[in-house]
Design a protein around this nucleic acid. Sequence first.
DNA 1: GCCTTACGTAAGCTTCTGCTTAAATAACGT
DNA 2: ACGTTATTTAAGCAGAAGCTTACGTAAGGC
Lengths: 108, 108
Amino acid sequence: MEEALRAIAEPHRRRILTLVSSNELSAGEIAARFEITRPAVSQHLTVLREAGLVAERRDGTRRLYRIRPEGFADLKSFLEAFWGEGLERLKVAAENEEGRRRRGRRAA
Amino acid sequence: MEEALRAIAEPHRRRILTLVSSNELSAGEIAARFEITRPAVSQHLTVLREAGLVAERRDGTRRLYRIRPEGFADLKSFLEAFWGEGLERLKVAAENEEGRRRRGRRAA
DNA sequence: GCCTTACGTAAGCTTCTGCTTAAATAACGT
DNA sequence: ACGTTATTTAAGCAGAAGCTTACGTAAGGC
């Protein structure tokens, strides 16, 4: 989980995730859309796979990557739990702020 | 925003955020609850402040830190947007998975 | 079998991170 | 002014991260 958070903190990896969320893509197809080299992309894919965010499937000589919804569900739960760890009241605080701002009051 | 994501990817920093979410705490009080040294905590606080996740207030010789709800709101929006970037359908996919699992079918 | 295609893995380099100890700064009390 | 308390800043280090080039491996085509 820790791993997943670190994984999505990297911009290239977020782009990869967005790409493979719509279609299943081969490593090469993914790499083609990046400035960085294929091995670099391959390494990112490994990180994402180990974080449980993508799944791999072999098709002949190619490897197809796709999003792994369960991984995302887990990550979301983790974040929800984190927000809830006392940060729950933040929502209320933010809303109060919002209300005050709308009434033309200065932010604290 | 990028910064905020990286900030919460670090375990110590998440703990710090949880701590200051309930009470406003001084740097020293925070450091007291950690194994790492005060300067290390101070550096984490700098990262959190630059990421917009905490606010600092001076009180005499001390510096009190508190959560900055707006920062969290922004981070959440960013993540929502990210999930939405085509990952929106994941929710549905996950639910379908769930349904299949319940019916005793193998996960793909 | 041999060549090609599509990958990952290894090795090595540079930059970033998280940490420590030591020194600087800021506000206060006397 | 001086010392004390609270905290940051500086310097430096070890390990991690992201990248590249070079090499290894696996599946197919001929």
